[in-house]
Design a protein around this nucleic acid. Structure first.
Lengths: 243, 243
DNA sequence: CGATACATTGAGAGGAATCAAATTGTGTGG
DNA sequence: CCACACAATTTGATTCCTCTCAATGTATCG
């Protein structure tokens, strides 16, 4: 059952289809890509800065993030990835990794030889356009994160991250929109928004006190989506989820 | 003289060729793209956040930057563009602009209908790969900027920007590497690295006092490239200039 | 029940923002 | 060549935000 065996790739295909219309033939071409399954423990590195990558890795379950580290040890998380994401999209055309990818939770992934993907892109312009578009949307997200890091205060930064998470989980059909499990420690949140873990704690508490969010354990509740969005200056447009 | 008339496109083609090997046929296909010339005054907007763009714009001379603005008026410059850059690469596949582009100096540009570019990408996989790669390199640069914004102090941020400028100008053959004209005000530098103009002034002075740079008017001298690189934690790898 | 990881809280220090003012640079026109 | 206006930079004083350090609280798990 080749089709069934390829079921994991469906998550990636759905993401691609969100970005560019794919015909049945395109889907079949994607499913027939040679690939294998890998799994990763929480905290383990999937890719290391400086690696030469020869396989593209598609996250199937779990969460992972990309990060970079300064010479002084400062860590910056640059993106957070969910099932269906290609966690090293750049390696399609650039061998050298300029970031680390680390599993947040237990992760399973599909790995595909870059060579095979490149050949597919040469043969199939629709799929090529879909991958290209994914990369352009990633860049859009990076721009919004830069705005967050450079020009918003602590409350704005944290609430913006919470908003983005809510919308992306909702798109995946994971969270109900009202509340969700945040699979990150406060230290990781801090590394994503350029704050210390301590200050993230304070900021979350402050947001909770003002009724913008509720918290229990790792769960985040969004009792007042509009006020949270307003605090964050959040506009989902940059995610280009539906045009 | 169709070839001559298309000379402006050469700048873009060189940048594409840096990223992916182009054959003579590929170059001919690019040169034959329909296009027209536009020019922009310093400070004028070339693209506005929210626009639906139907033409791609290739900078031929001058400098421009992309920026985003928060609800409270905070501005974040997310990238700085030089001759040969496509200043709205995302519009190849995404119509809606999520950022502004503003001319820093007087600029001339070539504009190409998106539709024609898309058709070219469908027909020519080598050119498609080159554009895709450009986008991936942009993303790499964004990641480095995020690290700069989130996890470096004022001196590190400013010196990192100066290093990036030096390397990019050098690649273009504009600066001699020892010194160059920085075509940005201190306010613009601040908006690029997430600082106030006042603090940029202080930081530049501090760098100059320590002998890392020299300053006169808009000119920046780099008397000690190694020490500056060290201060910035700069490693040009992320620019993927030569693999 | 300790061991460990994560979260909370407080005190203090420091970096950068803001506000305000002075200075310098740049260009224009008389 | 000077006077003027305007933009950009520099400097100082003050305030505020966030960090660091340290201590404590709270789960979770073997």
């Amino acid at each position: 059952m080749p089709y069934n065996a390829a079921a994991p790739l469906e998550k990636m295909i759905e993401k691609l289809a969100m970005r560019s219309s794919l015909l049945d033939g395109d889907r079949a071409a994607l499913i027939s890509l040679p690939h294998s399954i890998a799994s990763y423990d929480p905290g383990s590195y999937i890719i290391r800065d400086g690696d030469i990558a020869v396989r593209c890795i598609v996250l199937i379950s779990g969460f992972a993030f990309r990060h970079k580290i300064t010479r002084h040890g400062g860590r910056q998380i640059v993106s957070i990835h969910m099932p269906g994401d290609i966690i090293n999209l750049n390696n399609i055309h650039i061998g050298l990794s300029d970031y680390n990818v680390q599993a947040v939770t237990s992760c399973t992934a599909v790995t595909i030889p870059v060579k095979d993907l490149q050949e597919l892109l040469i043969d199939n312009s629709a799929i090529s356009a879909a991958f290209f578009t994914i990369s352009l949307v990633e860049a859009s997200s990076y721009r919004e994160w830069m705005l967050n890091l450079g020009r918003r205060d602590a409350r704005g930064r944290v609430s913006h991250l919470l908003c983005e998470f809510a919308v992306k989980l909702d798109t995946l059909g994971i969270g109900p929109g009202q509340s969700y499990d945040l699979p990150m420690t406060q230290e990781q949140i801090g590394d994503a928004v350029g704050l210390s873990a301590v200050h993230v704690s304070r900021t979350l508490k402050s947001l909770a006190q003002d009724g913008l969010i509720t918290m229990n354990k790792r769960g985040i509740g969004l009792p007042n989506w509009n006020r949270l969005k307003d605090e964050a200056g959040f506009n989902a447009r940059y995610l280009h989820i539906s045009e």
